[in-house]
C-alpha cells in the first residue's frame, strides 16, 4: 500500500463544524487544480479535528485553502501514520464495550438522564435490555446501544 505518496494531516476546526469544513474543502479540491487533497476523514470520536489526506503540503497561507471555521494545521515532528488512521476507518461497534451488569446512563429517548443496569445484550440487533435503577418497579426497557453511555463497567 505504499504506491501513493500522500500524507495525512490533522486540521483543527471550530467545534461542531467538522463536516461543513470537510465538505467545503472537498469542493475546493474538486474545483481547483493543484490542491492535492484525495480524501477527508471526519471521525465521530474526534471533536474539533478532521484528517486530510493530501499529496501536497497543506499550507493554510494558500488562499485556495481559505475555508470558514478552519483554524489551523496540527504541526508535529512526526506525521500521522496510516496505521493511526486505520482505527478510525473501522470503528468498533459500541455494543462490544458493554457488559452485562454495567451501569449506564440513557442519553436520548424518553428516559434521557436516567441511570440503568444492563440485564441483557442483543449483539446482532445492537440492542440492550436495561432495568432503570430509580424506578420503583423494575421494568425492562430495550434501547439501541448508541442511546446509552457507560458509567461503570460490571461490578466485581
Amino acid at each position: 500500500m505504499e504506491d501513493t505518496n500522500s500524507t495525512i494531516y490533522a486540521l483543527k476546526t471550530s467545534a461542531g463544524q467538522e463536516r461543513n469544513v470537510a465538505r467545503l474543502l472537498a469542493r475546493k479540491a474538486r474545483t481547483i487544480d493543484g490542491i492535492g487533497i484525495s480524501s477527508i476523514l471526519v471521525p465521530e470520536s474526534l471533536k474539533g479535528y478532521i484528517l486530510v489526506e493530501s499529496s501536497t503540503k497543506i499550507d493554510l497561507r494558500n488562499p485556495d485553502l481559505k475555508v470558514q471555521h478552519l483554524r489551523g494545521v496540527v504541526e508535529g515532528s512526526v506525521g500521522i501514520t496510516f496505521d493511526e488512521v486505520k482505527r478510525f476507518l473501522k470503528p468498533e461497534p459500541i455494543i462490544s464495550s458493554i457488559q452485562k451488569g454495567s451501569i449506564v446512563e440513557l442519553i436520548s429517548g424518553p428516559f434521557k438522564g436516567e441511570r440503568a443496569k444492563v440485564v441483557r445484550i442483543d449483539e446482532s440487533r445492537e440492542e440492550v435490555v436495561l432495568e432503570l435503577i430509580e424506578a420503583a418497579v423494575p421494568i425492562p426497557v430495550t434501547v439501541k446501544a448508541d442511546q446509552i453511555r457507560i458509567i461503570q463497567k460490571e461490578a466485581d
Partner: peptide, 13 residues
C-alpha cells in the same frame, strides 16, 4: 462518521 473521497486513485484511505 464522514469520509469524503475526492480522488480514489491517489487515496490510500
Amino acid at each position: 462518521g464522514l469520509l469524503i473521497i475526492t480522488d480514489p486513485e491517489e487515496s490510500r484511505v
